[in-house]
Design a protein around this nucleic acid. Structure first.
Lengths: 145, 145
DNA sequence: GGAGAATAGTTGAGTAGTCAAGTATCTGAG
DNA sequence: CTCAGATACTTGACTACTCAACTATTCTCC
């Protein structure tokens, strides 16, 4: 039944993010969102991304991205680079330090995620879950796809 | 792969809650969390629940519940009742007005959820999804169950 | 029956985000 | 060439929480 699935989804999200967030915060001083943008930058070409692109990928508003990046800039994990062709855009670029930080954090985070999930699901189930979740809208208001 | 499932999960949550929240806000002036506690109260015996119970069910901290209930009390959807046996507890009780509000909101919310999900999944898939999600921890730090 | 630990709830301060409005830049149509 | 929009951010004011510290009460058990 639809509503039950939805409620399970909400509860599970709250419980799981709370745990992972706390873990990431405690061992690396990073938010889940921080980690998410670090991850996006790490896999982007030249480790740089426009702020707008970033906001689309991590599902924050542009202003959310500005503030989040302020924090990451202050601690030196990301820097700014101007765009030659368009003076409106500034790229967020991952510094070497930021990349290093990401790699460390990714290792422990990946391990926790894997632990949480493999403890509860068989491989086939995990694939099924990922694929089902993948069919949900991945951007706000994408019900007209 | 575990990490992929997790990322799909995060994105889907952000996109979907954003949409439902906006919808609920626009048509009924309620937050998803507001709706959630209204729903918990509506199905509780005598439509009353201790604040602590509420906080466990909707996965907010006790202080979050206090503040959320402040709002719902101000607009008259919930009231307070003292407990005869234990002077520490005050029950949150759903008023008739609050119950009415919940019923209205539930109808449209249920319809949206159903629409979103049935548009993307077969009945069997939905059951599978609900059951898989149901295996995730439903309370913070419940990895030792 | 009284001290100490646990439980229910609130509050002050802080954080992570939102939205709406603003600035600066770019693009395209007449 | 210019002016009307669109686009890329940033900022101020707000919201919805969280956490830590507090009060008030209730259990425990010697």
């Amino acid at each position: 039944m639809a509503l039950e699935a939805w409620i399970n989804f909400l509860r599970a999200h709250a419980a799981v993010t709370r745990q992972f967030n706390a873990e990431l915060q405690a061992t690396h001083g990073l938010t889940l969102s921080d980690f998410d943008v670090l991850a996006q930058l790490a896999r982007a070409p030249e480790r740089a991304l426009k702020r707008v692109e970033l906001s689309e990928r991590v599902l924050l508003t542009p202003s959310g991205i500005t503030r989040l990046l302020n924090g990451l800039e202050r601690v030196g994990y990301v820097g700014r680079r101007e765009c030659a062709h368009d003076a409106r855009v500034t790229y967020a670029v991952l510094t070497d330090e930021g990349y290093e930080k990401f790699r460390e954090a990714a290792r422990t985070h990946r391990a926790s995620v894997r632990a949480l999930l493999t403890e509860r699901f068989e491989t086939a189930e995990l694939e099924a879950l990922a694929s089902l979740l993948g069919r949900l809208p991945m951007r706000p208001d994408a019900d007209c796809d």
